[in-house]
Design a protein around this nucleic acid. Structure first.
Lengths: 320, 320
DNA sequence: CAAATAGTGTCTCTTAGACATTATAAC
DNA sequence: GTTATAATGTCTAAGAGACACTATTTG
């Protein structure tokens, strides 16, 4: 993704010689249009191989100038004791995917409705390799959340523990081995991450947290989405309190992108994009600890897209 | 999605006062890490409310200078006789989501592996409102495909018919009522499209095709994704044959974006972006029917991202 | 010949980015 | 005073877009 999106890659691949083998189809009978009621009355939802649907949420926040992800310690098998993304099964027939993600987010963060109202939550993508969970075929719909500074994590639900992990300390997340777009799922499985076997991932560099299932892959995709998203939306403000300084906003970009930005140019750019931030007229109560004038305070503007977008530095290198 | 993604909006919302009610959690027992094997042996996948997972594919192509989407006529209930996106149930335990989408694509288009290799296929997003399918809670993982000119559609699988529908002729797809980002699913249901009740959608403007389920919403999201995707990737070439002229490429952009582009500037821009197209040294065998020089032929280059990206005209208007 | 199209050249305006400068505060 | 930071100004290069122009083909 380039300047104007010079934006993150969502996901993409070319079909590599799909092999359409015949199989079961679901729609039973060929009743008339009128008699759908009868059809539905006799419909047996358990006639298929069972599948489960979960939501997993990648909650990102900034703590001490570093990007952190919320992780839970699994209290039961599979992967008992391992770190995982917070998530859980969707309640069949009772909630939508978005509602399930919002519920998991609320449960695991322990935030009240007011605080949750400032959290950005969006769907990231779905992950459905048959072997990604050893119990059964589980399709996980991953969500991505941007949260402002939050209190220490506390276990919610069945989790044995919860913690904010620095994303650089998660194996395979910050710098995924594959700079290339994700290879088509059904094809080659040469990559090492993703826990493709459903077994516990192999130990990695000491000090690095290893995530259960394919959650390292999900986190890597989430980080790439986040990097792209703040280019063309004002969602970097979702990492900050209701009012913030331009310097704090710049710190968000520098942390998420992992690259320093020019303070002066960034400042002018942010103020020039319509609707990105609006002035509060206030100045920061706690001035810089090492001198300097009090910074002005801003709040998020009403724009939902940045135009022109911000440009991530040094994109030429990884274009191809 | 902006310039560099001035790119399409993927999806996003703010959690509006989620209501976390307690409920069943899935992970049974709290066995030791060592005994996962025993746990799995006694694991009953049917212990949950049943859910089904389908894939639906939005196959876009250009025919006679208009954007078309592949649709099938449903052969059985629900929505028997109505148009729908091609798709079907994922084979539990036997295929990944990507594989299921590729299989459906192959079945419904009838293309061979060679032709499929030129089709771009990517995951679009998942749709999981509990009432989107009257049979049961069905989560649909939607995929988006860009295909070059294809033969007439023919029914595959259980479909009663298949056709390429001009997207402007599909109710609620080309210009969705909500210019705003999709409202959070669990919240307000004021919109008219999506077939939220699970019943057959209400009749719309005569001559407009009405899609079953929430497929109009999926198609609308797919079109927005497509509009953004061709800004920062060279995937517009996926709509064309292996070799093409710059004018043909421009027609793709004009059709997908629904806006005319300046021929001269577009030409220079395309040739200036590294890796977008590469020359074949050939010229078009069939020159323009109304005069003019023979156009040079190009093929897709090796870039996966365009840098700098192409800019969609007139984005200022719909920023907020 | 006229008309239409492919491809290139020229100019202007906007923007990104490098860098300098001024102002304000802590020490 | 020195040092650090906030905020603004200046300059250059690149790119977008408007427009003009030439070349090549059909009829």
């Amino acid at each position: 993704m380039g300047a104007v999106e010079h934006r993150g890659i969502d996901e993409g691949a070319v079909v590599d010689a799909a092999q359409p083998d015949r199989g079961d189809r679901e729609v039973a009978g060929a009743g008339d249009a009128q008699e759908e009621r009868e059809f539905l009355a006799g419909y047996d939802p358990r006639a298929f191989d069972p599948m489960a649907v979960t939501v997993d949420v990648v909650v990102l926040t900034l703590r001490q100038g570093r990007l952190h992800v919320l992780a839970v310690e699994r209290g039961g098998p599979p992967f008992a004791g391992a770190w995982a993304l917070p998530g859980g099964f969707v309640r069949a027939g009772r909630e939508s995917l978005d509602a399930a993600a919002a519920r998991e987010l609320a449960e695991e963060t322990g935030l009240d409705a007011a605080a949750l109202g400032r959290v950005h939550l969006e769907q990231l993508g779905s992950y459905g390799r048959p072997d990604r969970d050893p119990r059964m075929h589980v399709v996980s719909v991953a969500y991505l959340a941007f949260a402002p500074g939050l209190p220490d994590a506390r276990p919610g639900g069945d989790a044995a523990g919860a913690a904010w992990l620095p994303v650089e300390a998660v194996a395979g997340a910050w710098q995924p081995e594959t700079a290339a777009p994700r290879p088509f799922e059904q094809g080659r499985r040469t990559g090492t991450h993703g826990g493709g076997t459903g077994r516990r991932p192999l130990p990695s560099v000491p000090g690095e947290a290893v995530l259960a299932f394919d959650h390292a892959r999900i986190l890597a995709d989430a980080l790439e989405r986040a990097r792209g998203k703040i280019e063309y939306t004002p969602l970097a403000t979702a990492f900050l309190a209701e009012t913030f300084t331009i310097t704090e906003l710049r710190a968000v970009y520098e942390t998420v992108w992992g690259a320093p930005l020019h303070a002066g140019n960034f400042h002018r750019k942010v103020l020039s994009v319509p609707g990105f931030v609006e002035s509060t007229g206030q100045t920061d109560a706690r001035p810089g600890s090492r001198g300097g004038p009090r910074a002005r305070l801003y709040r998020a503007g009403d724009a939902r897209l940045l135009h022109p977008a911000l440009l991530r530095p040094d994109r030429e290198a990884d274009i191809r």
